[in-house]
Write a protein that binds this DNA or RNA. Structure first.
Length: 632
RNA sequence: GCUGCUGUAGCUCAGCUGGUAGAGCACCUCCUUGGUAAGGAGGAGGUCAUGGGUUCGAGUCCCAUCAGCAGCUCCA
């Protein structure tokens, strides 16, 4: 608690002290100046919104990655005209050069001040009971209540803020949209209206950000998926069941070959297990208890039998791979046993979350379960991390971060989400943390992100719209071995329980494809390109030679299209270019005579005429190296 | 699932306060045989997402369903 200034009430801190106290709320990796700008603009927005909608009740309005939002309890549906009015009004307020004044209040004062706003009253109650503004327990949170005021608008707020609205650039923010949200993020609570805005230090920064957003829209895998004929969604299949068109299927097949080759080399054994099983299996595994909401309803086949005989589409492969382990008695000498499958699984995702390839209801995971002795766990996890790094390097994925995903913070844990076995959680989490620490890779920890049966190491990437997704995941599991009474015979002739490591290295084929499409903006590296070479004969008389070259390249396992249409060569080149083919071979009289092809690159560069054999050698080398470059 | 927005030809989109559907590209035919990002002419193609309702009359208004988009929540 800051000490009081001499000339003021002894329990009250000075304005300077209060402002200083606010500074510590800037997150570690957030630019403090930008944080204050956005936080202050949120208050300016709230003032404008409450002027436009006098019934709107402000709730919370924090800075976020690209700007800020502010949630209001508001029954009206704001229109574009309202948003424009609000943005204009914000600029006016900014030009009014109002100071952000802070003062400390008592809880009683706060309850009087915000008596018409139940949300602020709830915040005050929480803050005085050691919670943060999200209702989470915040150990050591100062029981200090402050209000900030600019112009006519007063808000309960811990700061920090800029000194005056003069520090805000009226041209460096944009109110982007209004969407729905819930008080405290809980759908059981009242729906709120969230005003989103992006805000930057300068007009130039704002412009740059808006350009990045446009570029992201151009890279959107759903748009490119249609344009490049990779996949489509058909209403008759239903939401979340995309179909892969031939070109998308080619990319997927190449990814599958790529990863299964690496797995075989790393000592994995591949299996095929059924996509469905009796409910009994998921009763034992705990999925029925903890994961039912994400499963499709069981099928009653009308064959009689008990309830547990009903058939379920599998939401995960782990119980199935356990059956592989259990297929015969195991000795400590056999372990680790690494069971892998491109496992198809079905999850009943809520309708509002499915879309494109990144979130689907039927997915194929690059899945594997390692059954290991306790003394092998760390070494095997390290092996998985190595495989993951190698795969990411080949796929060109360089921007990711590791997350140690833990079960719920014991302080706020809800029952039922995770299996109840504190010791198991503690030891598994410690194991994963040790591996991460020893690997020397930076990571962060997060509560509430674990699988129901154990903690995870997740590899987090961002999609082109800035949304974070999990690609790879590694999980240490002592729960399922227990549930299924897995055993191996140890060297001392006693039965022991193995540990299971669950891992997906290149994620689901669907999500990996969506990620790669966006990463490469549809211009895949040659080894992954669905069509590698487009052939453009200049005139009819070159068709035969062009077709022969296409056939030869195909026979050597390259992916080729030859355009025998009656369009002009310029149009054919343009078409291949728009389809982002790495190479276009132009064939006319000169090439035919010389047994050559004229090589045009996706970059627009022209390599000129090359003997066919020379081009084939080039292609082979580029494919083999998995480079993104078009020439070795 | 919830809050909101959207659904017109294969794609991108016009279509006013309700009066009976249009463009460009793609496609097909013909002409053109062209040297590195669109040659020309003609033609075909839509029960306006689906099902109800209001109305003399619905692409247009209302309701439901399906699908898509943004956000919340969830997640590989």
């Amino acid at each position: 608690m800051p000490r009081a200034a001499a000339h003021r009430c002894p329990t009250m801190a000075s304005e300077a002290e209060l402002k200083a106290a606010g500074e510590k709320y800037v997150p570690k990796d957030y630019d403090p100046a930008l944080y204050k700008t956005r936080h202050s603009l949120a208050h300016v927005l709230a003032q404008a919104v409450t002027e436009r909608f006098p019934n709107a009740k402000p709730t919370i309005g924090p800075p976020v990655e690209y700007g800020f939002y502010y949630d209001f309890d508001l029954d009206a549906q704001p229109t574009d005209a309202d948003l424009n009015w609000i943005a204009d009004r914000m600029r006016q307020i900014i030009k009014g050069k109002h100071a952000f004044k802070v003062r400390e209040i008592t809880a009683a004062e706060g309850r009087e001040l915000f008596k018409d706003n139940p949300y602020k009253l709830e915040l005050i109650d929480g803050l005085t009971n050691g919670q943060d503004e999200y209702g989470n327990s915040a150990a050591g949170a100062a029981p200090l209540l402050t209000v900030y005021q600019q112009d006519t608008f007063v808000d309960l707020c811990r700061g920090p803020h800029v000194e005056t609205t003069r520090d805000l650039d009226p041209k460096a923010f944009k109110v982007t949209q209004v969407t729905g949200s819930y008080w405290r993020g809980d759908e059981k609570n009242k729906g709120l209206r969230r005003f989103h805005a992006t805000a930057w230090a300068s007009e130039a920064d704002l412009k740059a950000h808006l350009e990045r957003v446009e570029e992201a829209a151009r890279r959107d895998h759903r748009k490119l998926g249609r344009e490049l004929e990779l996949f489509s969604n058909e209403p008759v299949f239903g939401s979340g069941f995309p179909m892969l068109l031939p070109k998308g299927a080619t990319v997927r097949r190449l990814l599958e070959q790529f990863i299964t080759d690496y797995e075989r080399q790393a000592g994995y054994q591949h299996v095929y297990t059924p996509d469905a099983a009796k409910k009994e299996l998921y009763r034992i595994s705990g999925h029925w208890e903890h994961y039912k909401d994400s499963m499709f309803p069981p099928m009653d086949l009308g064959e009689g039998g008990q309830e547990w005989d009903e058939l379920c589409l599998r939401p995960m492969c782990c119980p199935h791979h356990i059956q592989v382990y259990k297929a015969k008695p195991r000795s400590y000498r056999e372990l680790p046993i690494r069971i892998a499958e491109l496992g198809k699984m079905y999850r009943y995702e809520r309708s509002g979350v499915v879309g494109g390839l990144s979130r689907v209801r039927c997915m194929t995971l690059n899945d594997a379960h390692l059954f290991v002795r306790p003394d092998q766990v760390k070494q095997e996890i390290a092996g998985v991390l190595a495989l993951m790094k190698k795969s990411c390097a080949d796929l060109g994925i360089s921007e990711f971060r590791f997350r140690l995903s833990k079960n719920d913070d014991p302080a706020t844990a809800a029952k039922g989400k995770y299996v109840d076995n504190p010791e198991m959680w503690e030891s598994s989490t410690r194991m994963l943390r040790e591996v991460l620490t020893e690997s020397g890779m930076p990571f962060f920890e997060a509560w509430g992100e674990a699988a129901f049966y154990g903690p995870k190491i997740d590899v987090q990437v961002k999609d082109v719209m800035g949304r974070e997704e999990t690609l790879s995941t590694i999980q240490a599991d002592q729960h399922l071995p227990e549930q299924f009474k897995l055993e191996f015979k140890d060297s001392d002739d006693t039965p022991k329980r193995p540990v299971m490591i669950h891992r997906g290295v290149i994620s689901t084929m669907e999500r990996m494809m969506s990620y790669l499409i966006e990463l490469y903006a549809g211009a895949f590296p040659v080894w992954l390109a669905p069509v590698q070479v487009g052939i453009v004969p200049i005139a009819d008389r070159h068709f035969e030679y062009a077709s022969k070259i296409a056939a030869d390249l195909r026979a050597k396992d390259f992916r080729v299209e030859c355009d025998l249409g009656d369009k002009r060569m310029n149009a054919k080149i343009r078409e291949f270019q728009l389809q982002k083919l790495p190479y276009v071979l132009v064939i006319g009289d000169k090439e035919m005579e010389a047994g050559a092809v004229a090589v045009r690159l996706r970059s627009g560069d022209d390599l000129g005429a090359k003997p066919v054999a020379e081009f084939e050698a080039l292609l082979e080398q580029v494919v083999k190296s998995r480079t993104l470059k078009l020439v070795p």
